[in-house]
Design a protein around this nucleic acid. Structure first.
Lengths: 351, 351
DNA sequence: TTGAAAGCGGTACCAG
DNA sequence: CTGGTACCGCTTTCAA
């Protein structure tokens, strides 16, 4: 179990009877052509027999680049996030880069702390998927140090088209997703609709709120019976709480359809409905967001909005790597379209 | 957006009017006492004004230790894995260490590739939570280079108590978990029982099979009507396939209770039951494993086995860090107890 | 208490 | 095609 010292390039060179510089060239794909095939093979053999592995730390110090890409996410327990990560990993692997993943739990202090750590580790670039709208100043400062791509979440409201792009960002269209979901409910005949909004510090939820309100506003005979309360976190418990509050309102303000800002809250809504003796979809229709795993196996299977998470990850990484390579503008916005998934938790309004 | 060059310690020293060595001491918690308070403050001020951040790459090269802990998992989409990760993160944070997480998707080639990459990056230690029973030779070699802890999965069958510990491992007791689950079914009166086994290359599933068989063997009037087929992956689709096969057997070999090796397969079993017109739990009882999110919101809510995932992560990290510090034996086994969670997918056998 | 200098393990430029 | 050498940014003896 002892280490017996990890072999260095010097050991390899000695064993192969060449200078370290030669050994370095022999083992480098880009420089191997500068070396005679015979010595290259000899060095390779020496390296293999010693179990030599390049010290990436030394290599990074010398090269001034680490091949590491910092990735900051809010919550790994969110399957959507994992899918984004895999898109990033896919692109990273193709470039032999290494994603360093850190989690913030949506704590602004933790965001600063993990970004700082990543920066100390000299990541070549950063993909931030955990920003709050209040983090723009901090991020701007980070951007002055290293290429940054915002994924999933941005700063401004998406609906504000006049706002110039100040960052590189890859988002999905939450305004559009919410609009589709709510229009679906309206088309089914629902006239009293409520939303279960996530915190408005997160642009995704901000966008969904905007889309929700836009859809309602476009239909004069539809009223928004939301309580105005916002979920402290996008959880089952909060969805349940918010929904329970909805049904404490007078009958004329009780919704026949609910738009939840994510599937977990939709599940909480399902619970709350059961609590007050209402059934879904018979009495109340529910739409979720994100298409979480098993949401097709709930009772009833959940109508929801699916996001192109893997592709979003890929685009984010592509943008990051091209920024690192220096051939990318300082600001860019890629907006991906959501997909509506109709299942059994929505149905036409009872006559 | 330009970098304008990242400030180094030399820049800080120059600005503070001291030698780099002094600056280094001033900024180091352990050495700051060697420096006069006045200069320490001056250096700190210079560092702050320049936005200096220690170059962890250079620091690691010089110190010979990176403060990084490699963590290799099979599947980030498995919420249980995320919980283990958080336990690790918790301990790492307490030591100001940085987990580097890599995923294998249960591909042995990928395991080798990610471990190699982690080793090149000179992680101080490694937590492996993605090994197959066939990886022992490879892992032994890795252990000769760096402290390794096996988490969740080990090599031998857990039931083989005579087998000496050859590694550091932190496992949960799968034999016991399966035994409890199956005994529960037996106590409910079920006499024809089947399991839906995951691949036996993974010690967790191997242990669950062993526990399953042990429980059956201990009850002479109970018969195992499993087909012998094994899931290619622990997914809904495979659970469904295996269960469908179960009900293609003659009536006398059709189970009234099923033990699935994880919750996803249990969900697949639920699907298959519906396909053949059977109901759960009325006709067939089902037990899952892992207590996945939302398994309490399925139809019916799933009886399952919960694992102490966060604690498992913590123990793994503690063991890893003490091994890194050099005060830990080369072999050790920590075995954590599972917890049975009874919900609605199991009930007494119909008379 | 501070400065000088060596060196961690590579890479790349310059000679030969 | 190969060797010599400087240096990436930091830490750490050793002297002063």
């Amino acid at each position: 179990m002892a280490d017996s010292r990890v072999p260095t390039l010097k050991d390899v060179a000695k064993k192969a009877g060449v200078h370290v510089a030669t050994a370095s060239r022999a083992l480098s794909d880009e420089q191997a052509h500068l070396v005679s095939e015979a010595t290259r093979a000899r060095v390779q053999a020496a390296a293999d027999s010693l179990g030599y592995r390049t010290n990436a730390v030394a290599q990074s110090l010398r090269k001034g680049t680490t091949g590491a890409l910092g990735v900051v996410v809010a919550d790994l327990a969110n399957p959507f996030v994992v899918s984004v990560l895999r898109g990033i990993e896919f692109e990273a692997r193709a470039r032999d880069a290494m994603p360093l993943v850190a989690e913030t739990h949506d704590d602004p202090a933790l965001l600063r702390s993990v970004v700082t750590r990543l920066l100390r580790n000299r990541v070549d670039g950063l993909i931030l998927s955990a920003v709050h709208t209040t983090d723009e100043e901090f991020v701007a400062e980070v951007e002055s140090r290293v290429p940054v791509v915002l994924a999933v979440r941005g700063f401004g409201p998406q609906i504000d088209l006049g706002r110039p792009d100040r960052h590189r960002e890859v988002l999905h269209d939450d305004v559009q997703g919410a609009r589709i979901a709510v229009n679906h409910l309206i088309r089914l005949g629902h006239r009293r609709i409520a939303q279960l909004p996530g915190t408005q510090r997160i642009s995704s939820f901000l966008g969904r709120s905007d889309g929700y309100r836009a859809a309602i506003a476009a239909s004069p005979d539809v009223i928004d019976v939301s309580t105005g309360a916002v979920a402290l976190e996008a959880s089952v418990a909060e969805g349940r709480r918010l929904t329970a509050d909805l049904f404490r309102q007078p009958a004329g303000r009780q919704p026949t359809a609910i738009f939840a800002h994510n599937d977990l809250m939709a599940v909480g809504a399902l619970d709350a409905l059961r609590d007050v003796g209402l059934r879904c979809p018979d009495d109340v229709s529910i739409v979720g967001y994100n298409d979480a795993p098993l949401s097709d196996h709930l009772d009833p299977p959940l109508t929801t909005v699916r996001l192109p998470s893997f592709e979003l990850g890929r685009h984010s990484a592509q943008l990051a790597f091209s920024a690192i390579a220096g051939d990318s503008p300082d600001a860019a916005r890629i907006m991906l379209a959501p997909e509506f998934v109709e299942r059994k938790s929505t149905r036409p309004l009872n006559p």
